[in-house]
Design a protein around this nucleic acid. Structure first.
Length: 720
DNA sequence: GTTGATTCAACGGA
DNA sequence: CTCCGTTGAATCAA
């Protein structure tokens, strides 16, 4: 098998003798074992290194026992909140939702999702709104947002709201290339209901709504992101948008908020429970949902406080994102411009007034209270369109003054804010990454500038700023999955003719049809929703390599690096921020035939196994609720011990930030399955990337296992 | 309670 | 690629 990797192999000699540098005991998710009197390490061979690979397969200490939260009905209800920060421990109804309506106008036969018996959608009938939707033709979403709960009366009113995406009735608008697109009416309410129910966000009690925690904030942000992505995908499929902008970001957040799926609603000075310094956001509404910054557009958030009888406003948070001419490149200092002074309509300018946010900042300066600062930066991966918001922690207003604006010569207020010392790095880290990329500063601990030897389109740094270890054990870098033989011959299937790349709304594109009528990815490479199987374009397709339906075959999009962790061997992290659903990499390696799985996974000494047959809860939690096909675990087992890509360095965590998705591609009429990793949530730069290695079935629980060091509150205690 | 004004969005299109 | 116009939603203040 080794020969198969020859062409890609790292040469044993070079400027650096990698065969020596890399010839170190592999340390992937290892247990640090120190000499101990209680004999915990008695079964292991003594090693000169303090770190050795120990499968703690022996008898467990008292109190530690294996548990399978999603297999044991007795246990499953004990405390859903305890499982993991994202509620993946929550059992999910396997019943998917039929949220589609049959085309209502013209009676034409538009694109339909294959494999779906029409007319037998008993599921939709379970929904009380399955009737009387014919009047909902209009422009875009029809939101019937009725009250969720009137807190004063405590009773609910009205029927459940209906929210639809419906194509406008403009029959003339057939300018795009899909004239046959029928009216698509999608009721997204069931989708939202399902999401809210799955993540236990249906009835958030008033206490939690007022003051949250990390676990709740994480669930809310996750549901928002999943819902928003799905709405975007549905929106896209509608084809042309007759009105102009649709705003799934606003609509989605509004729906969550009116249903009470929000937290930290009470304004406060200082940090907000559940949001950590360095956390990133991609929409202003995300800041609202978790109570970090309440206004949907305004830059200054403030509240009234009573000070010796008088009530006065003080600022609690500000967003600095380029709307005004701020100066904040110094890192820990920010010169912030007051609000107002420009007429948004016509751009006319006038003097700013000492009122609202400006007055609040002034008062905050005198009072000396902490002010949260969110810094917005342009999303370079998105071509400068869109912004990323970084929570940069607490600042204090040091001084303020008025000056004349460059444009219009109007009076504006300025506030100098100083960052409170002792907080984790956030915005300055972004600046450091930028300098690494430019090469203007040298990083400490760099062992190799590119461990892939050019095999990937971007270099992958190997760094150790923790100890003296010079690198992981020798392996061959291969960027993709190697099959010794194809898993199956498929019937020749048609490729697409999308010369410019597959585009949403292209009803004639067979690749879109294979994916249930939707393109699975957005232009940024974001997986719009988890699916049992994603069909990417293959060799029979006419689309170019940068087609948006070829995401996982294009290699990592973010610039990742392999680094030495403090206590878990080598790990993987990214210089770039990765948004929720964003593609990370595929799992490269050697496909292990089923008959040989045992020798690798069970008795063998292979720490680099990926096993799709294990049980993975996160996949259920983020799955596509419209995907009605049965989830059939594909028996794909991969070893990356001898050869692999960056994915082999991803550690296990019981609260992971990455999940995997099965992807299929057809090359020369042969079917190949791949495993692609995507971000569960937004991941700030330099945060370790982890996924859940999965649970082995109880009958195979005698596999060797390792003590888990993920450190999450919901840690299972071990992994395989 | 309602309404209007204010506001460092987020798009798509030109 | 930058500019421009359109459509927005939370909150506050009246």
């Amino acid at each position: 098998m080794e020969q198969g990797f020859g062409s890609d192999s790292v040469p044993p000699a070079g400027p650096i003798d990698k065969s020596k540098v890399l010839d170190v005991k592999p340390l992937r998710c290892l247990v640090p074992v120190f000499p101990s009197p209680n004999g915990m390490a008695s079964g292991t061979t003594p090693q000169p290194s303090p770190f050795v690979c120990v499968p703690p397969s022996g008898p467990f200490p008292p109190g530690v026992s294996p548990f399978y939260p999603f297999l044991s009905p007795n246990e499953s209800g004990r405390s859903a909140e305890n499982h993991d920060g994202l509620g993946f421990g929550t059992p999910i109804s396997p019943v998917p939702l039929n949220s589609f309506r049959t085309p209502t106008a013209n009676g034409d036969t538009g694109p339909r999702r294959p494999g779906r018996p029409r007319g037998s959608n008993g599921l939709a009938a379970e929904d009380d709104d399955s009737q009387n939707h014919s009047d909902q033709f209009g422009s875009g979403y029809s939101v019937h947002a009725n009250d969720v709960e009137d807190t004063s009366t405590g009773k609910k009113r009205g029927r459940p709201r209906k929210t639809r995406l419906s194509q406008s009735g403009s029959g003339s608008g057939s300018g795009s290339g899909n004239p046959a697109t029928p009216p698509i009416e999608v009721d997204i309410d069931p989708l939202l209901n399902q999401l809210l129910a799955s993540f236990k966000l249906v009835e958030i009690d008033q206490v939690k709504k007022a003051d949250g925690d990390k676990e709740l904030a994480g669930r809310i942000l996750l549901v928002y992101d999943l819902f928003r992505r799905r709405m975007t995908q549905i929106e896209e499929r509608r084809g042309e948008t007759p009105g102009s902008a649709r705003r799934p970001d606003l609509k989605g957040a509004n729906l969550l908020m009116t249903r009470g799926a929000r937290t930290n609603q009470t304004k406060r000075v200082g940090n907000v429970p559940g949001v950590e310094v360095g956390d990133i956001f991609f929409f202003r509404m995300e800041l609202c949902l978790v109570g970090l910054h309440a206004p949907s557009m305004a830059g200054i958030d403030y509240m009234s406080v009573r000070l010796t009888g008088d009530e006065e406003p003080i600022a609690v948070s500000i967003v600095s994102s380029g709307g005004y001419d701020d100066e904040g490149d110094d890192g820990d200092v920010l010169i912030y411009t007051g609000q107002g002074g420009v007429q948004r309509r016509d751009g006319q300018m006038f003097d700013q007034k000492l009122e609202r946010g400006n007055l609040a900042l002034e008062k905050s300066m005198h009072r000396g209270n902490e002010v949260r600062v969110i810094r917005g930066v342009l999303d370079v991966q998105n071509g400068g369109r869109g912004k990323i918001y970084i929570y940069d922690g607490l600042y204090r207003v040091q001084e303020s003054w008025a000056e004349k604006s460059k444009l219009g010569n109007c009076s504006i207020f300025r506030y100098k804010l100083i960052r409170v010392p002792g907080q984790p790095e956030a915005f300055t880290l972004w600046k450091s990454v930028q300098q690494w990329r430019e090469g203007t500063v040298t990083r400490v601990g760099v062992i190799l500038p590119d461990l892939t030897s050019g095999a990937e389109s971007q270099p992958v740094c190997l760094v150790n700023d923790v100890d003296d270890e010079k690198g992981p054990a020798y392996f061959t870098y291969i960027p993709s999955l190697k099959y010794s033989k194809p898993f199956m011959k498929s019937n020749p299937s048609v490729g697409c003719q999308c010369l410019g790349g597959c585009q949403p709304g292209g009803t004639s594109c067979p690749c879109i049809q294979k994916n249930g009528g939707y393109l699975p990815f957005n232009p940024l490479g974001v997986l719009m929703s988890y699916k049992t199987l994603v069909h990417e374009c293959g060799s029979a397709c006419s689309c170019p390599p940068n087609c948006r339906n070829r995401i996982s075959q294009a290699g990592p999009k973010a610039r990742v690096e392999v680094f030495k962790t403090k206590n878990r061997g080598w790990g993987l992290r990214s210089w770039d921020p990765i948004r929720g659903g964003g593609f990370v990499c595929e799992y490269a390696g050697e496909v292990i035939e089923e008959s040989r799985v045992g020798e690798f996974g069970n008795d063998g000494d292979d720490d680099y196994i990926f096993d799709a047959t294990r049980m993975y809860e996160p996949l259920e939690a983020v799955r596509d609720y419209n995907d009605e096909s049965k989830k059939v675990p594909y028996p794909l087992v991969i070893s990356a011990k001898k050869g692999g890509n960056v994915a082999r360095f991803m550690n296990h965590s019981c609260s992971p930030n990455v999940f995997w998705q099965l992807v299929v591609r057809e090359i020369n009429n042969e079917t190949f399955y791949h495993v692609a990793f995507f971000a569960i949530r937004h991941i700030p730069p330099m945060q370790e990337l982890t996924f859940d290695y999965g649970m082995v079935p109880p009958d195979k629980a005698d596999r060797r296992r390792k003590k888990c060091l993920c450190g999450s509150l919901n840690c299972r205690g071990y992994f395989y």
